[in-house]
Design a protein around this nucleic acid. Sequence first.
DNA 1: CTAAGGACCTGTCGGC
DNA 2: TGCCGACAGGTCCTTA
Length: 271
Amino acid sequence: MPELPEVETTKLGLERLIVTQIIQSVDILYPSLRWIIPVHLSHCLNDLQILGISRVAKYILLEFNQGDLIIHLGMSGSISVVKQIETLQKHEHFVLNLKNGNSMRLKDPRRFGAVLWQNKGDTHPLLANLGLEPLSSAFNTKYLYSTFKGKKRSIKALIMDSKIVVGVGNIYVLEALFMAKISPLMPVNELSKKQTSQLIKTIKTVLKNAIKQGGTTLKDFSRVDKQAGYFTQELQVYGRANQPCLSCSDIITRVVQNNRSSFYCPSCQQY
DNA sequence: CTAAGGACCTGTCGGC
DNA sequence: TGCCGACAGGTCCTTA
């Protein structure tokens, strides 16, 4: 479900609701997410204060004196903060009960998400070898162009590779490629420096806009405050197979690429 | 080393 | 109305 903008939106929503709060108890209702939720979390977080919240790639980190609770939303995850007395919903697998009477609940129907822990000073292996943050200044034309060397894979697959750049998922990579007029099928070693520069710009623009709008809602993304995001209406190509291109009216094509759907305009986005 | 495909899950939607 | 297949925002791991 969530790409970087959705995770960022979740983080921002959580910040004022849980930072400085103290944990009363933890409920692990269904430990089998992508990895088993560590059992020790069910007691060792009690009485600890949440000191801060941050985002690394698509991971949300809740910071404690002793280390960080790492949360990934996978494909279908969402987090809400509600009164403890509210009835537990289906697929709410992990709950932090706070001393102020609220609960932070992780809901994840498909269970591709994760809840992990890293001790103070340690870096969890999953966070150890990540590529650059797309909105950082280090993610620039020089960097991206240098990653093309010796590679024949498609530009779409490369941008979605978290060892190169993190957080850009299936929707936003296709939107950015459309905006940059580059086919998702284009082999990276055939891209010019100018096209690379253009793509850097459109990736940043698309992500920033989506964050500003509060994240995409395709089907079931919901913010911490339960309001939907509003980005859906902004999508230019994603999900628009067989519909006219909004730029040239040619018909948008859908292809399967690395087992994921790609959408592009065969006229605007030359291969 | 690179690159592609499978696997992990449940829910929803369209077609018959 | 019900059943069945296709598809869905991620990404690690295995295979070639």
